[in-house]
């Protein structure tokens, strides 16, 4: 039975990579048969070798490092402020009534729309780029922290109050652990949004470096290989970051199973 399961899993994996492989083959045949110019669509193997070459010899690593720094700063700034606001609104109904209407009104502005204003106020610089990333990280964490804190089952709070838990102790020992799954969901979504907005910020706020800039240089010089390498790199980095956050989330919640209150 165990063996059957493994066989089954292997089968599913094989089915799953059949389509990407088929697409790569079609891509290769299409280009090498001359249906489309390699200037418009470079061969997949060229993209791969360019990626490896730029990673080992070129400045791609540096560009990645610069992008990652922006994401980390923006993510920390956005999630920290989002967490605090979400916690405050979750704990106090007065705070919710004070801030929620403004929060939900401002939330209607599509995130990218802030870029022109931020650039005018802070200039075409690193601060603006980090702020744009932070805005992306801010909303999901706020919303999910709020929902998590507000949704803490009443029975746990009642139990804690019977044992004399109050104030900070109640928040730290009962409310935050119970709200943790939702807060972690918020962080995960925030990271995704940060990554999306980073690329937008690097394309829309002129910069000398970063993975978005690599793609943009490729566009300006009509260097398709560079564009493709940039896209693949953003995808790979996004994948790695998601995995890291998922692992961290699993570790944080290890062994804890939460009851959902109906």
């Amino acid at each position: 039975m165990q063996i059957m399961n493994i066989q089954n899993r292997v089968k599913i994996k094989v089915i799953g990579i059949a389509l990407p492989i088929a697409l790569l083959i079609v891509w290769h045949v299409f280009v090498s048969a001359g249906y489309v110019s390699p200037h418009i669509l470079p061969l997949p193997e060229t993209v791969l070798s360019t990626l490896v070459r730029l990673l080992t010899k070129g400045k791609l690593i540096l560009m990645i490092a610069i992008s990652l720094r922006r994401v980390v700063y923006g993510f920390l700034l956005g999630t920290a402020s989002g967490f605090l606001l979400g916690l405050l609104m979750g704990l106090s109904r007065t705070a919710e009534k004070l801030f929620a209407p403004t929060f939900h009104t401002i939330r209607q502005v599509p995130l990218i729309g802030w870029i022109p204003l931020i650039v005018m106020w802070f200039g075409m610089n690193e601060v603006s780029r980090i702020l744009v990333v932070a805005i992306g990280a801010f909303y999901p964490t706020t919303l999910n922290t709020f929902a998590g804190v507000r949704g803490v089952p009443r029975k746990y709070v009642e139990l804690a109050s019977v044992y004399g838990y109050k104030g900070l102790k109640l928040v730290r020992r009962i409310i935050l652990p119970a709200a943790l799954p939702s807060i972690i969901t918020g962080f995960t979504l925030s990271l995704g949004m940060s990554w999306v907005l980073l690329v937008a910020a690097e394309l829309l706020i002129e910069t000398m470096a970063g993975i978005g800039k690599v793609i943009d240089i490729g566009r300006e010089t009509f260097n398709m290989e560079l564009v493709m390498v940039g896209i693949v790199t953003t995808g790979l980095l996004g994948f790695i970051m998601t995995k890291v956050v998922e692992r961290a989330a699993q570790a944080a919640q290890k062994g804890r199973v939460f009851e959902q209150e109906q």
Partner: peptide
């Protein structure tokens, strides 16, 4: 789902703004 799902999930990892220069070139 097993056939197309992995590709769709993998392609979502690319922040869609990264595709804008490519779309413009094409």
């Amino acid at each position: 789902d097993q056939f197309a799902g992995p590709l769709i999930k993998a392609s979502k990892q690319v922040p869609q703004f990264a595709l804008m220069p490519l779309i413009i070139l094409w």
